[in-house]
Design a protein around this nucleic acid. Structure first.
Lengths: 221, 221
DNA sequence: GATCCACTTACGGGTTACCGTAAAAAAATG
DNA sequence: CATTTTTTTACGGTAACCCGTAAGTGGATC
């Protein structure tokens, strides 16, 4: 049973609407904050008082607005909240639509549900909370297709490293030097060339410009 | 005086909250739709009945969901709505944060207000509607600084053309051929090289990979 | 330690991109 | 219409990138 919920969402509109949805679901206590720092603090205090939250609903991306915050965004908040209260169910509410990111949240962060800010987000949130109340997790129906459709190329850390450096203006020779300096192996120019060639071929690209754009869209850069 | 408002917003949460804000502002009649097509139709009908809307509040980006829609997004909706009812005040409500885009909306589309989906969007929307009621336009305070800060490089159509082709995997020789075929001038390889060189220098980039990413972030690609 | 295997590196030739200079063409000016 | 100015193009040398082949390296297995 979910009785005590905390909402972390910086957009006032979204925050208000989620509050309202919680009312409709007859949640006993709903707290809401506009900053990640406040959310974590409330979770800590509630835990300390032996009155822990039953659910954290949080956005992924929070806007900076001058007020100095320790926790930058939803990703960090999830990690830290789990340290404080490992069993806390977490539901993400975000406009993020890249399957790779959402998939990563389930696999790496073990979130319990994901609702996209999209056409039927209010209805979806209700279903999601009801599912979580039963101890199940909520995986948006649309997503299961997307993940299958999605270009399934897996970038290794090494790949990402190279592509990042390229997108910063390094030339391949310099990347090789950079890798040697940081004791990352492999590091030869030849290997860099080969990897890039392989990646491009696998994705059907002819130029690195396409590749960096693709990575940007995938959320890798 | 604003008495009759139409809201075009596909996110249910946002749509609901805007409706609520309109109630708080004691707007006599508030209609809301989740598709651009519906918005335009309602505007047409209202105009036909001699009961035109006093305000259109619309998002910029609408999600596709299988239902075939003629109007793709906010940009087209604005254009078409203005054709039907040229004096209709338009207020954009969007998460879009790129100053270039927002600036363009004011200058090219002559919108009357812009409220970003961000920390105090509900409060901002209220102020904005009140301003529009007085016949003034609402320009977010944060934006006036951003526009000044923004990298003020102006891309010509020609520049954008080249960069688009590069980002699609064309090599420079092919771009030259492409331009010749489409009777776009200038078209020589030499000019293409020079322009790219100039753009890169002006923006402090050394490689085209940086440039395409920059353009992506600026909303040019 | 010998053999195999996968991976990494070195090297070389071909292509494309880079960048300067100078000629040619087009546009602007008087 | 001649002249100046700007823009576009052609050309050439250098550097970076592309891509294949061959040599080298390191780890696993027996």
């Amino acid at each position: 049973m979910i009785e005590k919920v905390i909402i972390a969402e910086d957009q006032e509109f979204a925050n208000l609407s989620v509050q309202r949805t919680m009312e409709e679901l007859q949640i006993r206590q709903t707290d809401y904050v506009f900053y990640c720092d406040d959310a974590l603090q409330k979770i800590k205090i509630a835990k300390g008082k032996q009155e822990p939250y039953d659910l954290l609903i949080t956005d992924l991306y929070f806007e900076e607005d001058g007020t100095a915050q320790k926790i930058a965004g939803g990703f960090d908040l999830i990690k830290l909240a789990r340290e404080v209260q490992p069993d806390l169910p977490i539901l993400i509410l975000s406009a993020e639509s890249r399957p790779a990111t959402i998939d990563m949240l389930f696999k790496q962060f073990a979130i319990n549900g994901y609702v996209r800010k999209a056409r039927h987000d209010a209805k979806e949130l209700k279903s999601a909370v009801e599912k979580l109340a039963k101890g199940e997790s909520y995986y948006p129906q649309a997503l299961s297709q997307m993940v299958k459709q999605v270009n399934t190329y897996e970038f290794s850390d090494f790949d990402i490293n190279i592509i990042k450096l390229i997108s910063q203006g390094y030339q391949q020779k310099e990347i090789s030097e950079y890798l040697k300096k940081h004791n990352i192996r492999p590091s030869s120019l030849s290997t860099i060339e080969k990897r890039l060639n392989q990646i491009r071929e696998e994705l059907g690209f002819s130029k690195n410009e396409q590749l960096v754009l693709f990575c940007k869209e995938m959320g890798i850069l």
